[in-house]
């Protein structure tokens, strides 16, 4: 047990020193990098390691007769979580999400320190000591709190009420609900049932399984399937359409959506928000092909009322591309990112 806890303590100390070092720029900030694509799991693993580390540290300190008060354990652990979210995770997490995470962490700390009577008593003790004010120091602290707390609360209230000229927060609806049908170049497409006419097998029939088997194995075109190279001049059928879609994409779309389809094209940073990142699992990966068809055809100007704050400058591509070209470019986007369009069956 002691050996396990010692390892935990070591991890805790090293992790903490690294984190503080990176925050204070003593240690290069990329010493332990959060790698794009693995960040979500990496973040949870890091937190798990820190918890194990702190538990080990607490155990070791107690074993050495240097018990760290439970009250300060709770407070400091919560402060650690807030600092981790603020300084460790990059790009920065918006305040609204950090506030949610911070509140949940506070509840978690409360659940931990009050899970049993003994711990709860230990946690409350410093508060009770100050309220009881049996010693001179505690008496002094009680008076200090009596003065400081109302000032702090007043300050927070003032800060909340004072008129500000900050940008208002926006609750952007990224994927507004599409209409039941859309009319493009004079033809009506029912979004629930329409299919991409170029998502076909060698027999020329609509076949999602066949086409799914021919996309790149990983996003951003890193691993192409053997014998499934759209740029092979002999490629036919689906792969040929992917190539044609790619040509259309690089002639029209990549200026904004980027040559890796990650929304970081040449012109991307002229806009806020930058164009959609197709490699993110929250965009085309969770939408039906017909949804993309509707959005590409109608552009930002065609967003429905629900699509507040309509922050999209994408042109209505039906004015520049044919229906076939739109379907082909969508085919390419799925092929290149390695995602499959959503279906319901």
């Amino acid at each position: 047990m002691k050996a396990i806890m010692s390892v935990g303590a070591l991890i805790g100390v090293v992790g903490l020193l690294l984190l503080v070092g990176m925050i204070l720029d003593i240690v290069p900030s990329n010493t332990v990098r959060l790698v794009e694509g693995y960040m979500p799991v990496q973040m949870l693993l890091e937190l798990a390691l820190f918890v194990a580390g702190f538990a080990g540290l607490s155990y070791m300190m107690t074993a050495m007769g240097m018990t760290f008060p439970r009250f300060w354990q709770g407070i400091l652990f919560w402060a650690f979580i807030l600092l981790y979210l603020k300084f460790r995770v990059y790009p920065p997490i918006p305040f609204s999400v950090r506030a949610m995470y911070g509140t949940v962490s506070l509840v978690a700390v409360f659940m931990w320190v009050s899970a049993n009577e003994e711990d709860w008593k230990k946690f409350k003790q410093p508060i009770m000591n100050i309220l009881d004010a049996q010693t001179g120091m505690n008496k002094l602290l009680r008076y200090a709190y009596l003065i400081v707390l109302p000032i702090l609360i007043g300050g927070f209230s003032y800060n909340a009420m004072v008129p500000k000229s900050e940008e208002p927060i926006e609750l952007r609806t990224v994927h507004p609900a599409p209409p039941a049908s859309t009319k493009v170049h004079g033809k009506t497409y029912t979004l629930q049932t329409s299919q991409n006419p170029y998502r076909v097998n060698p027999e020329g029939k609509y076949d999602q399984e066949y086409t799914n088997a021919n996309i790149v194995e990983q996003g951003m075109g890193r691993l192409m399937k053997p014998n499934a190279n759209p740029w092979d001049k002999d490629a036919q059928g689906y792969l040929k359409y992917v190539r044609e879609g790619g040509e259309i994409f690089f002639q029209n779309c990549h200026f904004c959506h980027g040559d890796n389809l990650n929304g970081r094209g040449l012109h991307a940073f002229a806009f806020n928000p930058i164009p959609a990142n197709f490699t993110d699992p929250g965009t085309i990966a969770q939408l039906q092909e017909t949804f993309i068809f509707w959005r590409v055809s109608k552009g930002g100007i065609g967003l429905p009322n629900e699509g507040f704050p309509w922050a999209s400058v994408m042109p209505p591509w039906e004015q520049h591309l044919t229906v076939d070209e739109i379907w082909k470019v969508i085919l390419f986007e799925y092929w290149h990112t390695g995602y499959y369009p959503r279906t319901w069956d």
Binding site: M39, P40, P94, S96, I169, T173, P273, D280, G282
Partner: peptide
């Protein structure tokens, strides 16, 4: 769909966050 100011949106480098975007689905 994250509540944020346009400045936060810009700092985040796009609508999709590499961590939150994955947790959000």
């Amino acid at each position: 769909t994250i509540v944020m100011t346009p400045a936060e949106l810009k700092a985040m480098g796009g609508q999709q966050h590499p961590v939150l975007g994955n947790y959000g689905v």
